[in-house]
Design a protein around this nucleic acid. Structure first.
Lengths: 194, 194
DNA sequence: TACCTTTGCGAACAATCATTCGTTTTGCTT
DNA sequence: AAGCAAAACGAATGATTGTTCGCAAAGGTA
């Protein structure tokens, strides 16, 4: 039960990177096993099923976003600062767990029915919170006025591509990219900033 | 050879929407056949293989982007107007062929080796053309200065989400969304416009 | 009507999938 | 060294996959 934990984590990590590269369905247990260096049947000494791997990756990631959203939402930051903090939340998770977050973004539809349902529920709640910050800010004249749904998707997608295209880069280069992204969104959202 | 063409097109259309919904690997020939209303084996009277369907969808879409890029690149529009035209190109394709473009975006990695290679070649060429317009515009002071790679990804991703989240909407509602997106990008890129 | 091509069918194929099973090896604790 | 639980194995299972095959409707043309 000591080394077991390590193997388990190793399997999750290997699976996440494989799911990112090939997709969940196209990744076989034999693929995962080979990367870990054991036989496919041996995986089952550590994990319950292929689905369980996907569930764990997705829910772990979801919790991370949820905690961040809760923290930011309940803070006493201004609406623009809340959006700024949310952007940082996304970028930090993308930098630290690029594989997990890609699986979270792209492979959630292969979750089994029960987990899929609660996943979508959380996702909708997250989106609603995000939009309500935007809406409040627009009403107070802090943001440019546009459809809150469109604004939400624009911001999210300005932030979402980072973990796809970039190989692991240095923190410095990442932070330079971060500032480019942030100022782009700021101009798009505030119109008067530089 | 008369009705054959219709069936063939119907199969491609059904497959594209199924690939969009479930992904290429998770979509079986039996799934496609059932939606068409025939047996799986009957599909092979019209198409050669499952892979051929994916290849056709992806290359058809790629050609559409290529033609647009060629036309815009060779025009005598200003750099900002070229970017504006490219945004329209993406939005129009997304509106007219949401299924195909989603498959093009997400399932290309399952192309067989040969087609994958030429796909990535075209994709890189497209990206290079896009960036070179941005770079030229930055040097002339027409755009805000930032990494051309980051600018490229930001623009593309501001435009890419449309075909994911929206069910078929009216042209009017789409054009309203279009103007929200365009002005967001304009502010992000030009900083001085409204 | 007779002919021929297109379209569809159902059974069958080999390949591959996730998973289970009983057994053996490993490595730690006593 | 003995004992024991965790970890790994190889073989096997049933299900599902894309695809093939020989054959039957269908439907237009002569």
């Amino acid at each position: 039960m000591k080394r077991s934990k390590n193997r388990k984590d190793e399997i999750y990590a290997v699976a996440a990177s494989l799911f990112r590269k090939q997709g969940y369905v196209a990744s076989t247990m034999r693929d995962i096993a080979e990367l870990v260096g054991i036989e496919a049947s041996s995986l089952y000494s550590h994990i319950k099923s292929k689905e369980e791997i996907l569930i764990t990756i997705c829910t772990t990631c979801a919790e991370e976003f949820d905690e961040g959203m809760q923290r930011i939402k309940d803070s006493n930051l201004s609406n623009p600062d809340k959006i700024d903090a949310l952007i940082d939340l996304h970028l930090d998770i993308a930098y630290n767990k690029p594989s997990s977050v890609t699986v979270f973004d792209d492979e959630w539809r292969h979750l089994p029915e029960k987990e899929l349902k609660s996943f979508l529920k959380k996702r909708n709640a997250y989106e609603a919170n995000f939009k309500s910050i935007l809406k409040d800010g627009m009403e107070k004249g802090e943001f440019v006025t546009l459809s809150d749904s469109t604004a939400f998707h624009l911001i999210i997608n300005c932030v979402k591509w980072v973990h796809y295209y970039s190989k692991r880069i240095s923190k410095d280069r990442f932070d330079s990219k971060r500032s480019d992204i942030k100022s782009f969104i700021s101009r798009g959202l505030f119109s008067k900033m530089n």
